[in-house]
Amino acid sequence: MEELGKVHQLIIPLFGRDLTFNLDVILMTWIVITVLILFGFFSSRKKSLLPGPLQVLGELLVSQLYNLTEDAMDKEKAEKYGPLVCALFMFLLCSNWIGMIPHLHEPTKDLNTPLSLGIMGFCIAHYAGIKSKGLKKYAKEYCEPIFFMMPLNVIGELAKVVSISFRLFGNIMGGAIIILVVSYLTYSVIIPPFLNAFFGIFVGAIQAFVFTMLTVVYISVQVK
């Protein structure tokens, strides 16, 4: 049970402030990145008309996610944001599933990972919005329906970042806590594999998809 609050930290003092690095999360993120790079390399190394298993998997993921992006935006925009969407989904999926391997933890279990991805999506969406609509029209949208609603509209936009990142964090963290506590209560007999299947594979995949889709929608709302 002590594992609940344990965090490996590296604290570097810099200009009178302490920079705290969460070593566990950084290491796990690197593992995820390595897995994805290797997957990208091996799935596209021997491209052929009769694809191997890895190529099939890669093509399936990419084409499905492209279709999803194209449904939400027009074709030109989908070409531009498609790679981002694919990368985001694969990263999240891999991150959420990595916790099923013993001694590895989901990087998304730490609020910093979902929050930074959420902020990234927010910045991209608003940059795209300003670029496609122009600053004036973009700023005007905040004054809808009346100008004094502006502070609430701004809070509403910022709250999107909070909601998208806390949704992912809460689900993954909740799953991890449930698995830990129930394994502890049942002495790891019989039940944990099923919990891992549900919270790890199933909820992890759904939440990765939800996060990706919300990012797509936030971008598409801004560019239209």
Binding site: G170, N171, M173, G174, G175, I177, I178
Partner: peptide
Amino acid sequence: QTPSIFALV
């Protein structure tokens, strides 16, 4: 079930 997972957290 997500909201109840939030409550559990």
